[in-house]
């Protein structure tokens, strides 16, 4: 497997706070990569750096071999590198199907294509994906009236609708009922295997991430603490110290 995202020596500070210091990591194409670390360890900052929300101070970020650290959010999104938000962002005033149809990959459309109506296939795909995340029955409801967990599922379905190459998920299971989490893990895995989408996941729930990821990176205090297979990370004393506090 080759790497699709490559970070080399990425640093980012906010004033005196070093959110990320000299981070290097690789996301394997077609795989599931996990990113863990205690609160405030710089995970979301790293995500934001990758998708272009803020410029980085040092280092390089490559997507499919192309340097993207100087590019803007919409430009990066149009390359097929998509992110979901820690606090979900959906279009609350619209129903679920509309939310899905808006998420069609506009980057692949010319203006003339955009001035066409959605096709029968678009609707079918939207409904199929809503069924995939278990929201089919609620498809005609205002998405803002859904519960937080359902909104997260909707946001995930919207991301799949967009046919991304890589999907960056910021805590996909946070706020979701534990009984639904197993279903979500299964769906994430299927998105990876069936749709061939490379996943990079920030997650606090160790059971979830150890269950899914091929490779796990652990951040602490803005630095890369450890990386490797889930089993190795789980037993790494430095990781345990970072989470539980070293004595």
């Amino acid at each position: 497997m080759s790497s699709i995202i490559e970070l080399n020596g990425v640093s980012k500070s906010f004033g005196g706070v070093k959110a990320n210091a000299d981070i290097s990591m690789k996301v394997e194409k077609g795989g599931i990569t996990g990113l863990i670390g205690p609160n405030g360890s710089g995970k979301t900052t790293l995500f934001n750096s990758i998708v272009g929300y803020h410029p980085i101070d040092k280092g390089s970020i490559k997507f499919e071999g192309q340097e993207i650290s100087k590019m803007l959010v919409p430009e990066i999104a149009r390359l097929g590198l998509l992110r979901t938000f820690q606090t979900t962002r959906i279009y609350g005033a619209m129903n679920c199907v509309q939310n899905m149809l808006i998420s069609l990959p506009h980057r692949k459309m010319s203006l003339m294509d955009a001035l066409k109506r959605n096709t029968r296939e678009d609707y079918e795909r939207a409904e199929h994906l809503l069924e995939f995340v278990g929201l089919y029955e609620k498809r005609n409801l205002r998405s803002g009236s859904l519960s937080f967990g359902q909104q997260k599922l909707l946001e995930f379905a919207m991301a799949l609708m967009n046919e991304p190459t890589v999907l960056l998920l910021d805590e996909p299971t946070a706020g979701i009922n534990p009984t639904l989490i197993n279903g979500l893990i299964d769906r994430l895995k299927r998105a990876n295997s069936e749709f061939g989408i490379t996943l990079l996941i920030i997650e606090h729930n160790m059971r979830v991430i150890m269950n899914m990821a091929d490779t796990v990176y652990c951040l602490a205090h803005g630095e890369m603490l450890a990386s490797g297979k889930p089993e190795d990370i789980q037993d790494d004393p430095r990781v345990i110290d970072a989470y539980l506090g070293a004595h």
Binding site: P74, A77, L82, F85, R89, I90, I102, H106, R107
Partner: peptide
């Protein structure tokens, strides 16, 4: 209208 930042993040040519 509903969330321009999200629309941008979804690759819409805003």
């Amino acid at each position: 209208r509903d969330d321009e930042e999200k629309a941008e993040a979804m690759g819409i040519h805003t």
